[in-house]
């Protein structure tokens, strides 16, 4: 009995190491006020997107010709557009589109970029140097929006194709980032020590190098989500993304452009939301970078 009590005194020290690490990281994140703000707004947006059908007071595609171009009121919080659709409801549903576009296109970029970057950086050689790297150079030399535009035009208009196009455009950034990290880590002594204890290349890449590159990948991914949201909005604005009547912040901006003098609220609210979303995700991403960097105390 006495012994078990002694053990329990030492318990906090011997608790799950992963949990202990997580706790210090979370504490570090909470100290960063801007990151907390970014995180709260981001999660509010995610919440809004998920519960859009319950939160939206109107059907976002329902046209009401008796209430066209109405200014914000109690009935229509953010006003109505040229077809009498409730902007508040459309903005809420638009959050779904934007977050989907952000997450799925970055997911595509990660699924392609991480393995290519890992293998390219670890094995080096001709294919890495002359094919993969030159291909990323070529892709990075074209502005992201222009490339996405070209790809989306080839694939055909629509949200799915827009997401694929954005994902492909974001991929070279991840390949470069991960390759660079791998190049740095493959020379570390713990990799050599791992090889010296007989660990296979596959395990070294997956269990030793990949976990060490997670921090920069996560930071890059959050920033890429913000970029993807902008590109999706741009594509929708240009008519290559979400197709009408489905609401998307980008296409709402395009509609609002024609009514900037008479009904500025049509463009104002989706525009403000793009701004708030992107800045929140960026702030949150910065916070995550600081949280994962053990040198920041």
């Amino acid at each position: 009995m006495e012994q078990s009590q002694n053990l329990s005194v030492q318990k906090p020290k011997a608790q799950n190491p992963r949990l202990r690490m997580l706790k210090t990281m979370l504490e570090r994140l909470l100290q960063n006020k801007l990151a907390v703000f970014g995180g709260v707004v981001t999660f509010l947006l995610i919440f809004t997107a998920i519960f859009a059908p319950w939160l939206a007071p109107h059907d976002p595609t329902e046209q009401n010709y008796s209430a066209v171009l109405q200014a914000p009121s109690i009935e229509y919080w953010f006003g109505t557009d040229n077809l009498g659709r409730d902007i508040f409801s459309r903005v809420i549903y638009g959050a779904q589109v934007s977050l989907q576009a952000g997450l799925i296109s970055v997911g595509i970029a990660l699924i392609i970029g991480v393995p290519v970057g890992l293998i390219s950086g670890y094995y080096r050689g001709f294919i890495d140097e002359y094919i993969i790297m030159r291909m990323t150079d070529a892709m990075l030399s074209i502005p992201a929006l222009v490339l996405a535009l070209a790809l989306a035009a080839v694939l055909g208009a629509g949200l799915t194709n827009a997401m694929i196009a954005i994902g492909l455009v974001l991929t070279p950034n991840f390949v470069r980032l991960i390759r660079g990290e791998v190049l740095a880590h493959r020379e570390k002594e713990y990799v050599e020590a791992g090889k010296a204890s007989g660990i296979s290349d596959f395990s070294i890449i997956l269990k030793h190098i990949l976990p060490n590159t997670i921090a920069p990948i996560m930071v890059q991914a959050t920033l890429a989500i913000a970029a993807a949201i902008i590109v999706e909005a741009s594509l929708s604005y240009l008519g290559l993304g979400t197709q009408p009547p489905n609401p998307s912040w980008g296409s709402m901006l395009a509609t609002g452009q024609g009514y900037l003098d008479s009904a500025p609220w049509i463009a104002l609210f989706p525009g403000a939301l793009i701004f708030i979303t992107v800045i929140s995700i960026n702030l949150f991403g910065d916070g995550i970078r600081d949280m994962l960097d053990p040198k920041m105390k």
Partner: peptide, 9 residues
């Protein structure tokens, strides 16, 4: 100092 992988116990 560097022969152990910093992310694993």
């Amino acid at each position: 100092m560097t022969s152990l992988n910093p992310v694993h116990t």
